[in-house]
């Protein structure tokens, strides 16, 4: 186990990144298959899978940003509260300031980028620990949300609601309902955005100079510097990208819920970190994969769905199950990597 064939057909030990990615994908499919076999019901419908995507489009995008920062060896715990701030700002813009969907999108991106720039500068150029910087960012976003507007309200803007309710039907897929009618499967706009993001980021990380620099800096920042990589710029870019993705993810979240509230996306940063870990990203940096993160989000929400469908319909149980799942994943990862180390 843990070896792959290279082009010449010789066995090469699998890289840590690919090994963890493989584990994640296998576990996700095994879990989903088990759910289909033993729980049946909803899991046999293709729409359940797409609903998982609909519910988690924003989390996928946020987790991608988190993974990138984690790959460079940092962390960003501000993304959850930042999402709440973006929802609130966009909502206020749409309903109180006669904004259009376009201005709401631009505002979301601007807030995300602003956070990315400031946090990136503090982390990369002033060498302040990312945890502390983004902790402050989290506090700031949390406070600002209630300063912008302290109560929850639903957006009434019609153009926005039309966009929110747009369904993209998937050709040929769907299920037959009780009356024998074919119901086509659909996803929301946000899912399309999320999928495109995942593809673009996968390309960025795999084939571009910047993407490889993220890995190098996370692997060993001093070495990366000696190898001629601009470490500061790379770190800055990672936080900027994470901010931008929080902007996109924030708007996608907003598009899904259609309201602004200080309590939105509570704990999203921890979900994003958990998804990244389940997806095989290591907090120590240098190891991780966007596709893994994607499956990490899916695994996390699948387990939540399973718990709900098992009739343990209680927020307490969901939390405990998720915790157990993270625990199992971490232990498996650490055992696999430790064994590999001791063999080489």
């Amino acid at each position: 186990m843990g070896k792959v064939l290279n082009r010449k057909g010789r066995l090469v030990p699998m890289s840590d990144t690919n090994l963890l990615l493989t584990i994640t994908i296998v576990v996700f499919f095994a879990m989903y298959l088990a759910a289909m076999l033993f729980i049946g019901r909803g899991f046999l419908k293709i729409q359940t899978l797409f609903n998982i995507l609909n519910e988690n489009a924003a989390l996928i995008i946020l987790s991608c940003g988190m993974s990138i920062v984690m790959i460079t060896g940092g962390i960003d715990i501000s993304v959850g509260k930042l999402t709440a701030l973006i929802c609130m700002s966009a909502a206020v813009n749409l309903d109180y300031h006669n904004g259009s969907v376009l201005t709401a999108i631009l505002l979301s991106l601007a807030i995300g980028i602003a956070f990315g720039v400031v946090q990136g500068y503090l982390v990369a150029y002033l060498n302040i620990q990312p945890f502390i910087v983004t902790l402050a960012g989290m506090f700031f976003a949390k406070g600002m949300t209630t300063i912008v507007n302290s109560t929850q309200f639903n957006v009434q803007n019609e153009a926005f609601l039309a966009l929110k309710n747009t369904r993209v039907y998937i050709p040929f897929l769907g299920s037959v309902n009780k009356l024998g009618k074919f119901v086509p499967a659909y996803v929301e706009i946000g899912v399309i955005v999320a999928i495109v993001t995942v593809i673009l980021l996968f390309i960025l990380l795999r084939w571009t100079r910047l993407g490889r620099s993220f890995y190098a800096v996370g692997g060993n920042s001093q070495s990366a510097n000696m190898l001629g990589i601009n470490v500061r710029r790379t770190r800055f870019a990672a936080h900027l990208l994470c901010g931008l993705l929080a902007g996109i993810g924030g708007f996608v979240y907003f598009l899904h819920v259609g309201s602004g509230a200080p309590s939105h996306a509570t704990g999203a940063e921890m979900n994003a970190i958990a998804s990244s870990i389940i997806g095989g990203t290591m907090l120590t940096g240098g190891v991780g994969n966007i596709v893994g993160t994607f499956f990490g989000v899916l695994s996390l929400s699948t387990i939540k769905n399973i718990v709900t469908l098992l009739g343990l319909d209680d927020a307490w149980w969901t939390n405990i199950t998720v915790a157990v799942m993270i625990c199992i994943f971490l232990v498996v990862q650490s055992i696999v990597l430790l064994r590999k180390r001791s063999r080489s």
Binding site: R206, R209, R212, S213, N220, Q222, L227, G286
Partner: peptide, 23 residues
Amino acid sequence: ITLCPNLTVAENMYIGRTSGVIT
């Protein structure tokens, strides 16, 4: 050693000195 242990041997030989944006 001033190389990155998490990258491949080939990448360690080329990273930071190739001109193009694409690897």
